[in-house]
Amino acid sequence: MADPNQSAPEGRDPHSGGPALSRRSFLKGAGGVAAAGGALSAQAQAQSAEAATAVQTMRGTVEVTLQINGQARTLRCEPRTTLLSALRDRLEPALTGAKQVCDIGSCGACTVIIDGKPAYSCLTLAVQCRGKEVTTVEGLGSPEAMSDVQEAFCAKDGMMCGFCTPGFVVATHAALDRNPEADLEELKYELSGNICRCGTYPHVFDAARAAQAARHDGGEGK
């Protein structure tokens, strides 16, 4: 994919390096929408007028180097760019295993591992991840060499449409690493940050238990 900033309109240096300051407030635009909302408009406009003078918005792109799946990947993004958007929309080639579903940290489909801990990449800014190790579902295994958890998900049919599956796979890895002795109730708690609509939970639990049992029998998982 071409660098999105290459075709930025005139008057803006997309490679200015640091964040540029602008007097434009993004709340101003929100005020426009609120103006449509009848009763709310007066209050919202007052708020936005206040905000327009009080808030300054950073704009422009920064260069970020991230350690993703053991590789240093450099990309340009805005400071507000989420890690999820950086992975999916900025990296070339993109890493689209983490899914954008709710965008507000309520579904877990975008779960990645940052420095050993599971995190919602939609609630994490890319610039926050400088110097941290980010592992996505692609980094845990490939179709040719799956991780123990990925193999267990296949064997137990821990998926249907598959859109939540990468998030569940990453969360299951994190859960088993954090609490190798987790019983079923603890696993449910560990996986409660992820949502599935097709209803794969029972088979996801089966897969997690199977991977757990295999680690006990055969030592550490991959």
Partner: peptide, 19 residues
Amino acid sequence: GPDKVTGRAVYTHDVRIPG
């Protein structure tokens, strides 16, 4: 399954085309 559990499966949401 292997494509779905590793993020290899491409959904419409995941399609990326230059430009």
